[in-house]
Write a protein that binds this DNA or RNA. Sequence first.
DNA 1: CACGTTTACTCGTATAGACGAGTGGGCGAG
DNA 2: CTCGCCCACTCGTCTATACGAGTAAACGTG
Lengths: 262, 262
Amino acid sequence: MSPLPSGLLGDLDPTSDRAVFRQIADQLREAIDRGRFREGEKLPSEAELVEHFGVSRMTVRNAFSILQGEGLVHAEHGRGVFVRPRPPVRRLASDRFARRHREQGKSAFIVEADAAGSHPQVDSLEVKEERASQDVSARLGSVRRVLARRRRYLLDGRPVEFATSYLPLDIARGTPIAEPNPGPGGIYARLEELGHRLDHFEEEIRARMPSPAEVKTLRLAAGVPVIHLVRTAFDTEGRAVEVCDTVMAADAYVLSYQLPAT
Amino acid sequence: MSPLPSGLLGDLDPTSDRAVFRQIADQLREAIDRGRFREGEKLPSEAELVEHFGVSRMTVRNAFSILQGEGLVHAEHGRGVFVRPRPPVRRLASDRFARRHREQGKSAFIVEADAAGSHPQVDSLEVKEERASQDVSARLGSVRRVLARRRRYLLDGRPVEFATSYLPLDIARGTPIAEPNPGPGGIYARLEELGHRLDHFEEEIRARMPSPAEVKTLRLAAGVPVIHLVRTAFDTEGRAVEVCDTVMAADAYVLSYQLPAT
DNA sequence: CACGTTTACTCGTATAGACGAGTGGGCGAG
DNA sequence: CTCGCCCACTCGTCTATACGAGTAAACGTG
């Protein structure tokens, strides 16, 4: 095995009380930050680092696992460890549900992605009636059963978010909202046609690490959190007419809000 | 060593192709989700799990490291591994900068925390002039140097966020804004007194894993992401008069926004 | 009783070795 | 030349062992 190019990585400090695997992680992190390894580039293999630093393989793997947890690198079985490329982010503006955006024939996601030059897809559509969770019930005003609309969104083949809309049955049952494709303008356009003029939305945002199910659904790399967004739509009478629960891959999104100063 | 209470955890499935350490992590995760282990409660020790499952210690540690990465548990040297308690969250409402909240004598953070019954603190205050980063410069309209106000916020002794405000020198220099304590109502009140009537704010939100420096500053446990919020304040003439860069411990915050439907 | 010390238990760090499995290039057979 | 196989290299999983260091309770000494 050929040795590492000299100067690429330094030596360990045996006098330091910082653990060896942390020192190795520090060096790799710094090299990445300085651009010595670029996005998508392969890092030295475990064996090369074992050689270079004179440590055991588990020590090197521990160092890599730190960097994976930080979302800096990802390992590919049989190929190597790579600097994780930053995927293009999707910007969500706070006016994305404005009435003027609801006129077109396609869903907001499709329109937006097309405009950004990406290839959008919607996936695993499912519409069914079910029992409302405690949280959804509370938000919708103590309804027992709801219409649930689930779907997953992909950009250029990569899953970026999945969402479930919950609507009270007395509003949605038997309407186009209960159809897989609710028609132009999406369910908000249908709600307004049904006489529920929308007044405002409330969005709650959390960030956390994904559950294993979410890792699978969104094909998340290690070290990528999710943004959990719960939106409630209110009509002009103050009634909550929809709750939308969305989980997004945090490395694919920037949310943008405009707040009045008054 | 006394064995684990039977029924608490099951057996491994040797026929499964799921890795042993993943199976162990799955079992522990499920036990936690089902409430068999409550918040703050101690999980079985590594040695007990080694005994129970008949595997080596590294295998058990791998299982724990998965759960740590998910933010479900945290290890304490010499004590054990514990189910991570969910700290009380601070809700940030989208009207928190409304003019009516700016009348009081204290900063928004202090007022809010007092109301919620927590003990607030502000920390490591630093006010100085410095070169604007590329990003800040772009947001403020190509200014070269800025006044930077840094501070860290704590709730009940726990650091929850740190923030830096950047203001153009022609606005802030020589004003109370350049003082460590800008006075009642904070810098937004001062800006309005100086003739910059605030019109609106723009907030950009990202979530990601923390850098090592952020882990240190916010004393973050493993598996806790940060919310990165960049707010720009605009006056009625459309000029950006402040950029505030905030990094928050994601397990301590829920952000809440109200959007018009128009 | 009060206060150090011992001791057992905990997780943290590190080594050495083994085998499995995915990837991709090179080599040889056709 | 083309195709298939093999092999070298990669990370993934797992075992066994060792010592270090933090914690807390039991213990013993004064």
